[in-house]
């Protein structure tokens, strides 16, 4: 029943997830924490969890310098530029491509799961990803916007 257009649903969820990603990676700049540091980590009082030596690379990229936070934030901004969309992007062909979005969302999901604040952003990105994948499989297309359609504001 009903004719759900999956990429429209994906659009809303991807937008929410990307806003969350930008916001959470912004907080990740100040409160730096590797999400998976509990794996093999030891708890010290005070000082919190001490990550396992194997996680050293992530500690470098997240805690010592917030590289992953910055990457996640830039990715989120790029996705938002496509989803909202920024007028310049709207004219490009990638604006109507689901594959581009799917790839970007995979990366967003991957980077945000690494930082403490980003788990929900990652989960929601995956849901949006699912919606876009389904849209792609069903062969949905985004129509090119027509010019001079008028705003339809007047009675």
């Amino acid at each position: 029943m009903g004719n759900l257009v999956w990429h429209d649903l994906g659009h809303f969820i991807a937008t929410t997830a990307s806003v969350y990603a930008v916001w959470s990676s912004f907080f990740g700049l100040y409160f730096r924490k590797f999400f998976w540091d509990f794996v093999g980590g030891t708890l010290r009082d005070p000082g919190g969890i001490q990550p396992a030596p194997g996680a050293a690379v992530f500690i470098t990229l997240i805690v010592k310098a917030p590289i992953i936070q910055i990457v996640a934030m830039i990715l989120g901004i790029i996705i938002l530029a496509i989803e909202v969309p920024v007028p310049q992007v709207k004219q490009l062909a990638i604006y109507r491509s689901f594959v581009v979005r799917i790839v970007l969302l995979i990366f967003q999901s991957f980077f945000t799961i690494l930082i403490y604040q980003g788990t929900n952003a990652s989960l929601w990105s995956m849901i949006a990803l699912g919606c876009y994948t389904r849209a792609q499989l069903l062969g949905e297309v985004m129509e090119e916007a027509k010019e001079n359609r008028g705003s339809g504001e007047k009675a």
Binding site: M1, G2, N3, L4, V5, D8, L9, F12, I13, T16, A17, W124, I127
Partner: peptide
């Protein structure tokens, strides 16, 4: 997230 996204005018009209 799920409720807000599906409650959007666009989705509601496509697929109540």
């Amino acid at each position: 997230v799920l409720m807000y996204a599906t409650a959007h005018n666009k989705i509601r009209q496509q697929c109540f």
